[in-house]
Simulated scan of single mutants.
Amino acid sequence: MTVIDVRGLRKDFTVRVKAGRFRREARTVAAVDGVDLAVEAGEMLGYIGPNGAGKSTTLKMLTGVLYPSAGHVRVCGLEPVPRRTRLARRIGVVFGQRSQLWWDLPLRESFELLRHVYRVPATDHRTRLKWYRDLLDLDAFADLPVRQLSLGQRMRGELTAALLHGPEVLFLDEPTIGLDVVSKQAVRGFLADLRDAGDTTVVLTTHDLADIERLCRRLVVIDHGRVVHDGTLERLHERYGSRRRVVVDLDEPLATPVDLPGATVESVSADGLRISYALDSATAGALVARLAAVASLRDISVVEPDIEDVVARLYRA
């Protein structure tokens, strides 16, 4: 079932720009320019792009914060702005720089207040809260005021708050921004469990591409308000020329270079004792077998393509 259905989505803003020494003129800028998007129930979608690409504007239209200038948009079968109150009961939202918790109340009491805000039955609330307490280890700081929590603790509280009413769709905007390594691992592990359960559709925007690589099977890249890629990470690597690399350490330098169709020598270092090959079409096994036949191998490593490199190439293109 399609829970997010977007066709021709557009959002224009009017800005005033300098047009002379003492004059400014109005100009229309398209922050989102004809986005088409369909997200199925239970899917975890990575939605990325450079600063100013239109990611947050898209999320605000999907959640009913902004009214689109044009296009068709339905979330859970509802038009977000006219049905914003009904939609709020069926979605959860976490913005990395905004809080939905009460600053001076203990975290536990914030959860109880949200139960009344969303009118969640007490039994359902207790069941869900127990699950999140265990997964996110909330008991260690549940009685502390929110203002005393570390950023990692508060983010775990934000995720719980966004999910306590059992939303069908969860929108996450930079959920790991500013977190330390341990907190990032905890949040990623929780989101992986949420994805594997398959009960909640998740739309994740982030500049931390490690989040996307570890959590999302589908990636949508937006730039200048338009979708420039919609597919798997593997397809993205194929499209923008990512190549695996094989780094070989030898006991002694090769007497003659080894040629293998589909592999290219990228570098030779350490007086010829280390060679880096880029694989175009050859397999790592074929290259290693060819080298083992003519040289004494000390060590071998296969380096997978870096998602940050390929996304950087995409942005530059």
Rank of each mutant, 00 (worst) to 15 (best):
Q185T: 14
I212F: 13
V182W: 04
R108D: 13
D139H: 04
D223L: 09
V169Q: 09
I222L: 11
A197T: 06
T206C: 03
G96A: 05
T232G: 14
L219G: 15
P167M: 06
G189E: 06
D180T: 10
G225C: 10
T176Q: 07
T176M: 08
D124F: 02
L144F: 07
R218Y: 11
L163K: 06
P167R: 05
R218H: 14
H237K: 15
A210S: 15
R239L: 14
W103K: 01
L138T: 01
A192S: 13
L107S: 04
E109F: 04
L151P: 11
L233F: 01
P175K: 03
L179W: 10
V203P: 08
L144Q: 08
R188W: 02
T200C: 15
D193I: 00
A186D: 04
L209A: 09
R195H: 12
L170P: 10
T123M: 00
R128P: 02
V182I: 14
T201P: 10
L179C: 07
D104Q: 01
H125L: 07
D173E: 10
T123D: 06
P145Y: 05
L163I: 04
L136Q: 00
A192G: 10
P121N: 02
L236A: 13
Q97R: 11
D193W: 00
G96Q: 09
C216Q: 12
V181G: 12
E158D: 12
A186W: 04
P106W: 07
Q148D: 08
L164A: 05
A140L: 05
Q100K: 09
D143I: 03
R239K: 13
A142N: 03
L179N: 11
A162Y: 06
